[in-house]
Structure formats: structure tokens, C-alpha cells
Design a protein around this nucleic acid. Sequence first.
RNA 1: GGGACCGUAGUUCAACUGGUUAGAGCACCGCCCUGUCACGGCGGAAGUUGCGGGUUCGAAUCCCGUCGGUCCCGCCA
Length: 600
Amino acid sequence: MRNTICEDLNISDIGKDVSLSGWVDRRRDHGGVIFIDLRDHSGYLQLTFNPEDGNKLFKKAEKLRNESVISVTGIITERPTESINENIPTGKIELNVKKLKVLNEVKNNLPFPVSIYDDENTKEELRIKYRYLDLRRGKLIKNLKTRHQIIKIARKFLDENGFTEIETPLLTKSTPEGARDFLVPSRLSKGDFFALPQSPQLYKQLLMIGGLNNYYQIAKCFRDEDLRADRQPEFTQLDIEMSFIEEEEIINFNERLIKKIWKDILNIDLINNFPRMTWKEAMDNYGTDRPDTRYEMLLRNVSSIMGDIGFNIFTKTIDSGGEIKCITVKEGNSNISNVRIKPGGDIFKVAQEAGAGGLAFIRVKENDIDTIGAIKNGLNKSKINQLLELTGAESGDLILFGAGPTTIVNQSLDRVRQYLAKELDILKTKNNMWNFLWITDFPMFERNDDENRLEALHHPFCAPKGIEVNNKNESNNELESSIAQAYDLVLNGLELGGGSIRIHQSDLQKEVLKTIGLSETEIHDKFGFLIEALEMGAPPHGGIAFGLDRIVMLMIGAESIRETIAFPKNQQSRCLLTKAPSIVSKEQLKELEIEITVEE
RNA sequence: GGGACCGUAGUUCAACUGGUUAGAGCACCGCCCUGUCACGGCGGAAGUUGCGGGUUCGAAUCCCGUCGGUCCCGCCA
């Protein structure tokens, strides 16, 4: 069907008899001569059809339409000098076609043009529904090839460092905690269900207990939760686990892996020793555990300065155990009007949606400040100086205050900070920065106020710092407030991956599971196999998992991980191409003894 | 579960403040054209303005509902 491809042809092939196959990318019919841009997976080549080469052939060529699949044979000829196309690698040559075979025709109107000069405007709905056409446009294929390269580099690196790639089951056990499971009914055990894995977490731990030493997997994971631009119901983790290892070694090893990927793919030399920040520092200074460190605008706690100035909201906040924090917007006086901060304003709304009642403000001027009377009245010269010193605010800057429960203040100022970074175009100039950051020292648990119980912040298999298994009389309090040996890798405000040293002692594991509210029975039913395994000589171990889709997304500069996935789902978690999920036959349901109760 | 934005020809868009027969590029069909490369020229076909209801003398435009899409909140150990 072909003996060469577009990218292999150049001026040295002039005079050669060749055959190629591919798609009609575009046609230009001049009546007397017809030009066809032939596209194959490797590039483009201009075909020419002349009436002198036979009426039958020419008539056939006249009927060719975009995206027809053809096979052609002819002679490579040199283009006239004035007809050279500098824009394509084969621009100096063309194929004078002697034989044309139409392998497949396009029956209907195409839902969108495949050959494109402007492919940005196609509705994503159509791009996903006709993914095979979108793929033909090349950009997606390029993304998928980058993804392939990243995986290849990771595989090679891990292989060279003594890691073994192991597949773990997709039909597995539903576990409490964490995301909602996708369930798969069992036919042989009617009424029972498998769950698709949210991650291979426990399997990889069992591999360590099995003495594998070093494991990795390009692992499909499934979480039945609502979608976002960077979240799909099925996604891929680069999953890694190591034995006899400590936090520091895992962090250092994975930095080398990340540096290798960035170097080989983007030719970027990332700095040695990514910055580290404890969870507490992140929460204090940024209000989030995944801070975007490309810009400052840090949160500052001003409770001690502003708490006693007699401003009612501040006073109440302190009395009820809350905090007053602020961010300083450089040159905010000229950039941000009062209207935007007050009720109804866009910045106000951002804070409000995050739970804040509003935003107090101070505009710093030359030797003076501008704010509402209730605040200004309580501020003497010394207070103002303390404030300016703590915030670093100068004349022209705007200080925005949040007051209330710590979590709300952090969340709202974090959102305002991110919002302003976009609004003020701070990110635009810092888009190309790769600010990797390790967040460490996460608390083991956080309180779920709705259910009034503790939850594992990472997952309940993280090892706490400095809590010994032998101290069985350890007060629960100490475990509850303990710090996990856990770490997240954050890049420009996005969580790229996270991991921890795992608990390798059964007693401690049981204590942790009890702390998050599981009964002895539940522990036995849900995690009995793990506890048992930990009782039979489990080595200390730990690891990490990276969100592969997100890594690819950032490296190719895409806005959504859908651009990194061949056949993604839409926001309703539906496959627009295959129309999955869909109803199944009564027979299938009967076999599983499943009854549908939903109407319709 | 909630909020915001969007939905007009196969497609990308237009249609002012509610006012003639809803327009244009590309694609499609026909004719012309021998050096184009986003070829060009002439002509043609193509619309339940997502769907349903309401307001109005009159609705693509305003209102309500609904369906679909995107972004976000909740959710995602």
C-alpha cells in the first residue's frame, strides 16, 4: 500500500518511483491541474494530477474530498522555484501521481474541519464525540506522545534503580474512607461487589511485605466523585513504593526522577533541592496546603495588632477564638477600587463564597492610612507602624483583612490571593516558572465537623512521627495530634503527588484506624488482611504517587487533563463517543440478581 | 446538591434597544479555471435559533421550566 512516508522524502528522492497512503488534507482544483495535500502520520506531501496522465485518473482526482483515504503511486519531482513552499519539510518536492486508489470515502459532512489553520475554536463536546477526527489533527497525538515519553523516561529511570513494575488487581475490595468507590457486581458471589481501586495503596504495601523491595506501576485509579478540569473518574498514577526507607530518601529519590523528566522532555534544569515547607507554614502563610509560590502576597496574622483596636468585628473574632489575618496587595490603591472590596464587588464575592463575612481594608498612603472610621479610630501611630512592619506594606499598597475562624480566614484569603494574582496579571509574567515545593509534616488527623469525628488527612496508613508501637499506654491524645510522615509535591499551586512512610506495625495501625472511628469489627472486616500481614514481618516502607495526567498537562501547557487522555469523559462522567454508561439488558441484570429501582 | 457562563445552517461566528424574508466565512452541490498551497471566480442548496411554555401586535433576543456543554463550590483519604 506504500513504500515510503512523507517525512522520509526530500530533494534527494527526485525522480524516484514511490507510493504513499494517507488522507486528503486539502485539495486545490485549478481545472487543469489538481493539487492534493496528502497527509500521513508523519507529515504532508503535495500531490499533483495532470490531464496528460490520463482522463480516467484525472476524473477520479476531481472527485476527491477532504479526509478521503487514498493510496497513490507516482514520481517524485522537483517543484518549480516559484512554487516552493517553505512552510513544510517536503516543500521543494511533489508527487506527480500516475496511479490513484481511493481506499475509503467520506460519506457525510465532517462535524468539524480536520485540516485546520485554527483549531482552537472547535467545541470540546464535538472534539470528544468524534475523538478519532480530533486525533487526526495531530495536536492530541503530540500530547499523547509526550505522555508516552514521560512514562518511558520514568520506566527507564525506575528500572535502572532496581524497581519492578507490577500490575495490581482492578477488581478489588471496597474500603471505607476516601472517595466513593466504583462498584462491580460479582456474578459468582451474588449480592457481593468488587470495587475498582482508588489507588493501589494496600497492594503495594503488601508487595513490600512480600519482600519485593522496590515497586512501581503506571496505575489506573478510579474515584466516583464530581469532575473538574484536572479530575477525571479514571486517571493514572505513577505509583512508587520502597522498603527500608525513610522520608528523606524518598523525597530525594523522587526529586531526581522529576528532574530527569523535566530535563529530558523540556530540557529544563530544575534546581537541586526543591524548597520545603511544613504544612503549618503553608497554612499560616498561604492559607492552603498547596500554595502557589510563584508570587508573594503572603497571609500575615495580625490578631495581636488589630484585635484590640475596638473594631467590633475584630473584637468578636478574638473573643470567639478566631484570627485576624491580612494580605498586602502591592500598588493595590491604584489597581483596586473600594467598590470591588465592598458587598457586591467581585473581590468581596470571592471572599464571601469561601465563607468570609467580608473584607476590611486599609489603604497605605504617604505618612497616612485610609480606611473606614471604625478602624482608623483605634489605630495609633505605634499600631500602624507595627502593621506596616509586619506586612511590609508601603505607600500605595492595599491591605485586605479577613477575620473569623482560622479555617475560614485561611480559605477566603487564599482564594482572594489566587484571584488577585490572576486579575492583576501577576501570573502572566510568571507562567513559565516551575516552582516545585514539598509540603511536609502534615497532621495525621483533621476533624470532620459534620460527622464530629477525626479523619485521616492523607490516608490512615501514614505513619505518625515519633509514636512508638510499644507504647501501648500512649494516650490517644498524643496520636490524635501527631504529625504524619507524609509529603506532597506541589507545583505552582497544584498537587502533583503525595506519599508517606507507612505504618508497618499492626498495633499502631489498629490504633490509627480506631482513631478515625472504626470499631474492632470494622477493622477486622475491612482491613483484617492488612493487620494480619503487618503481624508477619512487615518491613518499614513508604512511597509516593504522582498524578500522571496532571504532570503531562502542565508540561504541555494544557488547561485540562482531558488534553492528555485519548478518550476522556465529560463533566457528567459520560463518554460522549460510546455513550457509556448505558442501560444493560434485563438478562444481564437477572444474572447478577440486580434490580433497578430508578424510574424510566 | 448549589452557583456562574454558554447553546443560531455540517461547522465557526453575526443579527444593535424586542421590529422586514435570521446573515457571512469554511465545508457541501453545480459550472469555470494549468502552479496553487487557508488557490481563485460565478451560482446553488442548507435553519423547528437545543426543547417546552409564557409575556407581547411582534421573540434568536425578555421571563419560567427543561435538556445538553464548560468552569467553579460542595465532594475528591
